[in-house]
């Protein structure tokens, strides 16, 4: 339970601040002493947070599914030939700036949530795919040989041996991907998706640093919360699957 405590505390601060941003008004007053409207009020922060989170969760779910499936496929005997291709495609995906993906996706998908979702999925693929490949390739060949040689079917080898052993590394990939995408999702505000990027964009357009700060604080908090959630998840995983050799 104690491993989850930091994430719970951070989540409480995040939700509390989204619901009651005006408590920080003195801070914003100090930043922007001459303004009347200090708190972004075109949309509630809770709604933006929820929307932002939904975008990240959906893209992470799709990205993880596709990347893990791709990684598994490329390490099977039948997919071995595609291994170099798959890792290349994933690398190219990463070199493509998300803004460029948006620019290309908007004419096809229109404004709104769809193009940013595409960008997030594409962008989040690489860390997961790379870690899936590293995790599966990193398993001691003797373990796989023993599993196969003792009568496990290929499916049983994958589910009972390979995925539990590679899981920790795959999880780390998902963690990187999600953290990057929390920041990237904010760009969606430029093409009409409702995210925590809205106050940032509005603040930049109107020259209101207070707005920018409000968006940035919440995005930062969301990233921290998610990261500590994964930290706790990884520790729990370690305790379950990879005990320390020293413990007696």
């Amino acid at each position: 339970m104690r491993v989850w405590l930091p994430s719970i505390l951070l989540a409480l601060v995040l939700c509390g601040l989204s619901a009651a941003m005006p408590v920080l008004e003195p801070l914003f007053h100090w930043v922007e002493p001459d303004r009347q409207r200090l708190i972004y009020d075109r949309e509630s922060f809770l709604f933006l947070l929820q929307n932002h989170l939904t975008l990240v969760v959906i893209s992470a779910a799709i990205g993880s599914l596709v990347a893990v499936a791709g990684g598994i496929f490329a390490t099977r005997p039948s997919g071995r030939d595609f291994l170099p291709l798959v890792s290349q495609v994933a690398s190219i995906g990463q070199t493509f700036p998300p803004v460029a993906v948006l620019a290309l996706a908007v004419p096809v998908l229109g404004f709104g949530e769809a193009p940013i979702l595409v960008a997030l999925v594409l962008y989040g693929l690489l860390p997961i795919l790379r870690n899936t490949l590293a995790g599966l390739e990193g398993i001691d060949p003797a373990v796989r040989e023993a599993a196969r040689g003792m009568g496990m079917s290929p499916m049983q080898v994958l589910v009972r041996v390979e995925l539990p052993l590679a899981g920790r590394v795959i999880l780390a990939g998902i963690r990187t991907s999600v953290t990057i995408n929390i920041a990237t999702a904010a760009i969606g505000s430029t093409i009409g998706a409702r995210t925590l990027g809205d106050p940032v964009i509005a603040g930049l357009v109107n020259g209101n640093t207070a707005y920018v700060l409000q968006g940035a604080i919440l995005i930062g908090l969301l990233a921290l919360t998610t990261d500590s959630l994964f930290e706790a998840l990884e520790r729990t995983w370690d305790r379950r699957f990879s005990p320390q050799p020293a413990m007696t």
Partner: peptide, 20 residues
Amino acid sequence: PQQLRLNMGYVIQGTGLFPH
């Protein structure tokens, strides 16, 4: 092949024990 192997014990040099 799976049925065949289930009826053959297999021991290898690196042990190949499942670390998890």
